Simulated assay, not measured.
Amino acid sequence: METIRKCAPTKAILIGEHFVVHGEKAIAMPAKPLNRAILQEKGKESSLRIIGKTGEAIFEAGGKTSGQKVLHSFGQIYFAILKRKGIKQHKGIAITLKYSGAPKGMGNSASLACAAAKALCGYFKIKPTNAELFSLVQLSEKIAHSNPSGIDAKTIVEGKAQVFQRGKGKKPARFQAIRINLPKECSFLAINSAKNKPPAKTSLLVEKFSRLVKSAEGKKATAEYRRIFTSFLREIKKKSPNPKTLGELMNENHSLLRAGGVSSASIEKAIAILARQPSVYGAKLTGAGGEGGAVLALASKKEEGNIRRALAKSGLKSYHL
């Protein structure tokens, strides 16, 4: 019985969430929490079974789909590969998805889709280019998120940091792969603020932040963000970035996001704990935010263990990026 194991990184937005929806630039990087897909030959002939954390879905080569709706997006990858190869019959296969536990807002859906696409391509003897793999992941993302920007898929598929700007009208989104450098003595941590609470809906958070952008304070906030973005990009591209400068810019970015109403009590609690640690240079929400959202912190490598223990005492899980 053939078994194929594939993995894909998650992603973290370093700066620019929500502002990017309104045409501003953002920076994202691939992150170490890896999601995995394990493909095995088993099950009904000419079908794919996706086994997730809380259920499963079955896709038949003829086009029939059944099972948990949250997993239906993976069927788009399967059907696209069958069409490309002209396959109508094959041995039954199943893919078990192994979720890393990375917090909401770190591109888990795109990461799992990428791992599954790699496994399916491997099984059907396809060697996809990055562009082809990106297209497959986006097929899944369009079902999962309706109108995905592509930043998650691009960052995860290429495994490189990206400067991203959403397209306007018929103009496509713009991606630019960049090399970023962390201060040698620092690392990024991602913190899950959820503590078993249901996460806030991204669409509602986007709508809430849009009200700030459209308000009288919107132009001022956007101009301030542009200054923060320009300074952050310039600093993180240096050979030896200044951790205090990066941390201060992260804090300033978070203040704008908080003013836009997309932070939450759980995120602010995590940031308050981090602020009490002298070896944390800065922290901000990453992703959409809201209740149960993720926090990104720039911290000293030497003190990372102490920082993570302080978070754990309050029931907060953290991940080294």
Rank of each mutant, 00 (worst) to 15 (best):
K25Q: 09
K302V: 02
A288T: 07
F229G: 00
G305R: 12
L182H: 08
G52V: 05
N130H: 11
S109G: 06
N35I: 03
K88W: 04
S318A: 15
K160I: 03
P9H: 14
E132D: 11
K64G: 07
K125T: 05
A310Y: 02
G52F: 08
F188P: 01
T286M: 09
A223R: 00
K6M: 15
L139E: 11
P199A: 02
G105N: 11
I50G: 11
K208N: 04
N108M: 12
E291S: 09
I4C: 05
I81N: 08
P9C: 14
L136V: 08
T155W: 09
G43P: 02
E141D: 10
S140A: 15
A221G: 01
A113S: 15
K98H: 12
T245R: 13
I156A: 08
A80Q: 07
A190E: 03
S66H: 06
Q40G: 03
L139Y: 10
P128R: 10
T202C: 03
L39P: 08
E60N: 12
A61Q: 07
A119E: 07
E60T: 11
E45Y: 02
R211E: 10
R276N: 14
E56Y: 15
A37N: 05
C121K: 07
I38K: 14
F134P: 02
R226S: 00
I143C: 03
G247H: 05
V295N: 05
L82C: 08
S203C: 02
K142D: 03
G75V: 06
L136E: 08
A310I: 00
I13G: 02
I228Y: 00
L257G: 03
K168N: 10
S300W: 06
P278R: 09
I50M: 13
K32P: 01
A12F: 13
N192P: 02
E303P: 01
T286L: 10
P172F: 12
I38W: 04
M250P: 01
I191Y: 11
I58F: 12
A80L: 04
Y319D: 08
S111L: 04
G159I: 04
K301C: 03
S279E: 15
G55T: 08
R308D: 02
K301Q: 06
G101I: 12
K201Q: 12
N196P: 00
Q68A: 15
K184P: 11
A200H: 01
N181K: 13
A288R: 05
G16T: 03
I180D: 09
T245Y: 04
N108L: 11
T10A: 14
I156V: 07
H90G: 04
F175A: 05
S266F: 11
P172N: 09
Q138N: 14
F229A: 00
